[in-house]
Simulated assay, not measured.
Amino acid sequence: MEVRRVQKFGKSTLMVSLPADWVKEVGLNPGESIYLEVDEDGSLKVYPPNLKTEGSTKEMKVSLKSSSNADLVSRIIYSLYILGFDRVIIEKSDGPFNEDILRKIKDTVRSLIGLEIVSQDLSTIQIQSFLDPTKYNMSSLVTRLSNTLKQMLHYLNLGIKEASRTFLQEVLELEKEIDRLYYLSLRQLLLAQVNRSLAYMIGVKRIQIVGNRILMKAVEEAADEISEAVSDLLSLHPEDLEIMKYSWDRIDMIFDQTTVVIDHVVKVLNKEDVKLVNEVLEELRTLRRVLMTEALITEEKVEKTGSPRVIVVFKSLNLRLYNAIRRMEPIAEIAFNRSVENLKEISLE
């Protein structure tokens, strides 16, 4: 650690010079602005105006054989993406790629934002990331995730109301978008953990990294629950899907309330208001109780149809929606913790 003396400049200003090696490394010029941040421990952080990315490319080589598992290859690509690798070279050491592995690699790359196959031959594929991490603010990613989740609920609602397989299929497409945003968010968080300049630019505080990861996972799991409910609905025969329409009026109310609560949960993340966040937590618990009550009422109505498959799918729908609402609770709890972390005193009436 280097020690520098604080000097007086003018009547009341204190000044300390910047290390020459650091100035040279980040390419700082006279007249440019720098960013200052007071960290949680009281230390002062100094950030350059721009991220220096030259020479920081992370590359990984993956060697495969004919016996290699395609799903494992896919998981490796996902992991390298999340860990911030910019280039992945996949080589087949005993001949050309087989159809299963080739299809899996291409599907995986298409499912990740900013990733592309830049070169390919029979036994080698080079994957490159073209992401500019400074362009993806964490707050905007949270908003996009929550908005996409609400859209899933909207199309699920329409799918039941209209007995429309097209609307239900749209839910599955939106779930893929949730996954894409989720993986991008994890990549951003891990990059921010090792690059404090980037963290500052995309609005990630060190103390909030773990909470942000839990938050992203909660939304992704809620989307999974809704997606599973849709898969069950799509398994119904068209006549059985028509039967589900008769219970739509009560389901519509639950969907509306769930959308409102999701809105409230996300909005209180940036509010330092203990009482407001507590109200949202109570909203979530109340919504779960309402869902259970409505589920019992509507199940009696559905059971009168005499279709065992519809009854099973309807119960699954209620359970999945209940679980999706439960997934929102950790987000509200994170919001509550953030609302008190910077307070000097808590005063309750």
Rank of each mutant, 00 (worst) to 15 (best):
I34Q: 07
G84A: 07
G84W: 01
S67L: 13
S67H: 14
E37M: 04
N98S: 08
R87C: 05
K58P: 03
I89G: 02
I77N: 04
Y81C: 05
V46H: 06
V88N: 01
Y81R: 07
E54S: 15
L64T: 11
V46Q: 06
L72H: 09
L102F: 11
S74G: 11
D86P: 04
I101F: 09
F85E: 05
Y35G: 13
F85C: 06
L51N: 06
K58G: 04
P48V: 05
Y81I: 05
I82C: 02
D39I: 10
K92E: 01
G84N: 08
I90H: 00
S63H: 12
K61D: 04
K52E: 08
R75F: 09
T53A: 15
T57Q: 09
N69F: 10
R75H: 08
P96L: 04
K61T: 03
E91K: 09
V62M: 04
R75P: 04
Y47Q: 07
D41G: 04
I76D: 01
S68A: 06
D41E: 12
I101R: 06
D41N: 14
T57I: 13
E59L: 13
I89R: 12
P49A: 12
K92S: 06
V46F: 04
D94T: 00
N98I: 03
I76Y: 05
G95A: 00
I101P: 06
K61E: 04
S43E: 05
E99S: 12
A70C: 05
S43L: 05
I76R: 12
L44D: 02
P48R: 06
L44I: 06
D100F: 14
